[in-house]
Design a protein around this nucleic acid. Structure first.
Length: 226
DNA sequence: CACTAGATTTTCT
DNA sequence: GAAAATCTAGTGG
């Protein structure tokens, strides 16, 4: 018997559902990012830089498994940027599902979210941690400035964006397109392997701060260390 | 190990 | 002008 295990890019219908469901189901899926090498060079240590004629036109494919997410759902969620209504920044969260919402936090780090639920309802999933796979990276080992060999590079929302070269320039990009997307590689995360916990860094959000809207894969070494 | 301070800039009041 | 969906380096035990 032949079992077909096709890799499938998640389509807009996947994101057009309850944010808590999408948050859980994104665990074990793979984030793929096609990046221009010049962008990556700005954060790479010298030995890892893309050099020569490849520089500037070479596209690197970066891949990693999503191991931690957080849900930000609805206008009543005081932890969500959207709770203060439509502003230039939050407009994307109110838009149709399957698009990227990127914001700058603490003046220093970018965070990647995937917009969920139907247009008009503000919600998104924050991608908090990624487990890297050695695949498609032709530029050799991807060392980031200031990190040592064993340091994890994607165990936190700010860190993973730096690794993947994600910044404000991809804010609003279609996650169902061919620059940044998520694939189902037929990896099943069992229900008992999903840990449900409080969200991080949102204690200012009065009666919403204790909502258990953070999800991660149990015992995974790449989950963020809060 | 636990805890604290500092970096740095967009966003909204 | 204050706060922020973070992370690192430094201190002290």
């Amino acid at each position: 018997m032949i079992v077909i295990r096709a890799t499938m890019k998640l389509n807009r219908d996947f994101y057009n559902r309850n944010t808590l469901t999408v948050s859980k189901e994104l665990l074990g899926k793979y984030l793929i990012c096609k990046v221009d090498s010049t962008k990556l060079n700005s954060v790479l240590s010298y030995s890892s830089k893309v050099k020569g004629e490849d520089q500037g036109n070479k596209k690197l494919i970066l891949v990693g498994k999503i191991v931690e997410t957080e849900a930000y759902k609805g206008p009543e969620d005081l932890a969500s940027h959207a709770s203060r209504g439509r502003t230039p920044r939050t407009e994307i969260m109110f838009g149709p599902p399957g698009y990227a919402y990127i914001y700058l936090i603490y003046g220093m780090y970018f965070c990647l979210n995937v917009v969920t639920e139907p247009e008009g309802y503000p919600a998104a999933v924050l991608i908090r941690a990624i487990e890297l796979v050695k695949e498609g990276i032709k530029g050799g080992r991807r060392d980031i400035k200031g990190y040592k060999g064993k340091d994890l590079l994607t165990n936190g929302p700010g860190k993973l964006c730096r690794y993947f070269g994600i910044d404000k320039s991809v804010n609003g990009i279609d996650i169902c397109g061919n620059v940044l997307w998520v694939e189902d590689r037929n990896e099943i995360v069992k229900k008992e392997d999903i840990v449900v916990a409080k969200r991080i860094g949102v204690d200012y959000a009065k009666h919403c701060k204790d909502r258990k809207w953070r999800f991660y894969i149990k015992n995974n070494p790449c989950v963020s260390k809060c």
